[in-house]
């Protein structure tokens, strides 16, 4: 089975979404006392379309990133898939269930972790939340202990499970949130910005952990994040949402191919170069001390690079794609109209 936007093939669809839309009526709060009094009788309101008819399919075992600027509709999409809210129109099936019917059979088979929300008992050690989780999900004691031990060891948090959650750091808490979410061995995991606010070390630990459990358990994971490092480390497929619509659905590599037409060439020279000499080449160029960075049309790299290197004392040279962050940020800004992009000076 193929997803509707050319993503990787999957044999077993776990998430099937067709024309899913969600709109909200929001009330505007007018400024000033007179307007506030007037609003007691009539409150101005408008309809906000958080999601505008999204269609896609996610296969079993896929690790999909959902990217988009704030307010793009990512979290709304996850809330619809996990049955927290009901859609305005459209259909969705997750593991064969309509999510917003909230069947216990369905809710036993997935988990949702939200980076900005705490789901563990705040004043108690995580061990107490785990115990409650065992009861709610009816996990056999032996299986519960085995899974819990495996997860806490993988994340290196064995010493923390008996400490009150309120005393833990954000990173430690997020690790324990993940343990709690995975105790019942869900088939589908929804992660809403799990690394938000975490330092680089904690982010890296979560990446390793998620990659490991996903590979081990063939879990289907949908991740929303603003950090491209999360995406690059974990996902092969990315879905870009802006303004409630899907702008791109495909592999990460294809994002680079589709939305950029140039590469970044960095030269480390023996001495600071002549600015005018590089400016004459006609490519966007940035010079910092002996280091020169050029944006060159990817089709012309092979022809242009020998010419640039000729006659220069070069200590090091690198040719890289435009960073994913930059491409996605440009996509967010342009709402997709920027693709495909022509680098300035490409025709030089």
């Amino acid at each position: 089975m193929h997803n509707s936007h050319g993503g990787p093939a999957s044999t077993d669809a776990v998430i099937e979404v067709e024309g899913l839309a969600k709109s909200y009526r929001v009330f505007d709060k007018p400024e000033g006392l007179r307007a506030s009094l007037k609003a007691l009788v009539h409150r101005p309101s408008r309809v906000v379309e958080a999601l505008k008819g999204v269609s896609l399919t996610v296969g079993r075992g896929e690790f999909v990133a959902l990217l988009g600027p704030n307010g793009a509709g990512k979290t709304t999409f996850l809330k619809l898939l996990s049955g927290i809210i009901t859609p305005s129109r459209g259909t969705a099936r997750v593991l064969g269930h309509v999510p917003w019917e909230r069947a216990d059979d369905f809710r036993r088979r997935f988990a949702l972790v939200m980076g900005q929300r705490n789901q563990l008992w705040w004043d108690l050690p995580a061990a107490e939340s785990f115990r409650l989780h065992r009861e709610i999900y009816r996990i056999e004691p032996a299986r519960f202990e085995r899974t819990r031990d495996e997860l806490v060891d993988l994340l290196g948090v064995r010493k923390l499970v008996l400490q009150p959650v309120r005393d833990l750091s954000l990173g430690e808490r997020m690790k324990l949130e993940l343990v709690a979410a995975l105790l019942h061995e869900p088939e589908v995991l929804f992660l809403d910005e799990p690394t938000i606010g975490l330092d680089v070390v904690a982010q890296h630990a979560l990446h390793r952990f998620l990659a490991h459990v996903q590979a081990e358990r063939k879990m289907t994971i949908v991740l929303t994040t603003h950090y491209m490092k999360d995406v690059a480390a974990l996902c092969r497929r990315a879905i870009v949402i802006t303004g409630g619509s899907i702008l791109y659905d495909g592999s990460l590599d294809q994002i680079v191919d589709r939305f950029t037409t140039h590469k970044i060439v960095t030269l480390d020279l023996d001495e600071a170069p002549d600015r005018e000499e590089f400016a004459r080449l006609g490519f966007p160029c940035e010079i910092r001390g002996p280091q020169v960075t050029l944006r060159i049309d990817r089709q012309r790299i092979a022809d242009v690079l020998p010419e640039i290197l000729r006659g220069r004392q070069v200590r090091d040279v690198s040719v890289e794609d435009v960073p994913l962050e930059e491409i996605v940020a440009e996509l967010f800004r342009s709402g997709g109209t920027a693709a495909p992009r022509e680098p300035a000076g490409a025709g030089a």
Binding site: S82, G83, R102, D105, M114, I136
Partner: peptide, 8 residues
């Protein structure tokens, strides 16, 4: 939200 996703 966390309550609504639990099978209870």
């Amino acid at each position: 939200d966390a309550v609504l996703v639990q099978p209870l």
